[in-house]
């Protein structure tokens, strides 16, 4: 019994057969050589800054001296009411922006998947919003949102809605950012979902038709399950992107976080602490670590869901 166990353990730790082959080591060496350039670039521009941010979050930084302060930067941000407000605003933005954009993108993708007459034109139009530089788009929206002369209030006026001060009223500042973001990303997400839709084998639909499934039943029981890989992909990138929203706010409110900081998100808070004339890089790094932890947890959670809910053909 003991002997058998020893043999079993010995087998587990014995040198694999392929390790003795020279070709194995040559191929492995070559493989590492191929990934070396990418690894070197990632090390300099991703891994080093990533670990450096962790380190920086425990220091009080000035250009000439850096003093180790332990958790003081974390203590500061957790005591700062504007940090909590920024966190709330970020969740508010993500919570509305991600599902609404995804839902609308699904609708648009389905529409585009029908054989429309001007399909190519429609696809280009939707994608144009995404590929136009965000600063240019935001400046146009700044005019659309102008409370006195903006087109949005003009159209709302047709339905008897009185003038809304989109960019000057704290109640509407963040919704204004969300509306613009939805408009901007619907086309991009729709194109990805459309690719998924067009990749679904026709035989599933034929089988559903033969079984007498209605249009909605087919959509729910065939289309959506087979589209889950694309939906999941869009959901993940949209969630991560939404947590990092900054440029739209910075441009829309001329470098301020909206009236009474009503549109200050976590990345805006990080930028403000670290770079807008304040230079508290330690605090900015601490807030970045918190943001990283949030995104990391969400991604882990999503991966759990993926294993259960995403179906691959």
């Amino acid at each position: 019994m003991i002997k058998q166990h020893i043999l079993k353990v010995g087998r587990r730790f014995s040198i694999p057969q392929e390790w003795t082959s020279r070709s194995y080591w040559r191929e492995t060496g070559l493989a590492y050589l191929y990934i070396l350039p990418a690894f070197a670039i990632l090390s300099v521009f991703v891994f080093y800054p990533f670990f450096s941010a962790f380190r920086l979050s425990t220091f009080k930084w000035t250009p000439l001296t850096s003093t180790f302060t332990g958790w003081r930067n974390y203590e500061y941000i957790f005591r700062d009411k504007y940090f909590w407000r920024a966190l709330w605003n970020t969740f508010y933005y993500v919570g509305i922006n991600v599902p609404v954009t995804l839902f609308l993108a699904l609708l648009v993708a389905n529409l585009l998947n029908k054989s429309l007459r001007f399909l190519a034109f429609a696809r280009t139009s939707y994608f144009l919003a995404y590929i136009t530089p965000v600063v240019a788009v935001t400046m146009v929206w700044q005019w659309l949102y102008n409370w006195q002369y903006g087109l949005l209030n003009y159209f709302l006026g047709w339905f008897g809605v009185s003038l809304i001060n989109w960019l000057g009223d704290k109640r509407f500042a963040l919704p204004a950012v969300i509306i613009m973001s939805i408009w901007r990303f619907v086309g991009y997400e729709a194109i990805i979902l459309l690719a998924g839709l067009q990749g679904i084998d026709k035989m599933y639909y034929e089988a559903a038709r033969i079984d007498g499934a209605s249009g909605f039943q087919t959509w729910r029981k065939v289309t959506i399950p087979l589209l889950t890989p694309q939906i999941f992909f869009v959901f993940v990138i949209s969630l991560i992107g939404s947590f990092k929203v900054f440029t739209e706010i910075y441009v829309l409110f001329n470098g301020t976080p909206g009236p009474l900081k009503s549109a200050e998100t976590l990345v805006f808070y990080i930028m403000r602490q670290g770079f807008f004339g304040t230079q508290h890089l330690g605090r900015a790094a601490a807030a970045s670590v918190v943001l990283f932890a949030i995104i990391f947890l969400f991604t882990l959670f999503q991966l759990q869901i993926t294993q259960k809910r995403v179906h691959y053909q």
Binding site: Q148, Y149, L167, G168, F253, N254, G255, P259
Partner: peptide, 15 residues
């Protein structure tokens, strides 16, 4: 007029 925009914009719009 309380705004974050440059005053020149409001000046041009007679605000």
């Amino acid at each position: 007029l309380i705004t974050s925009d440059y005053m020149s914009s409001a000046f041009q719009a007679n605000q």
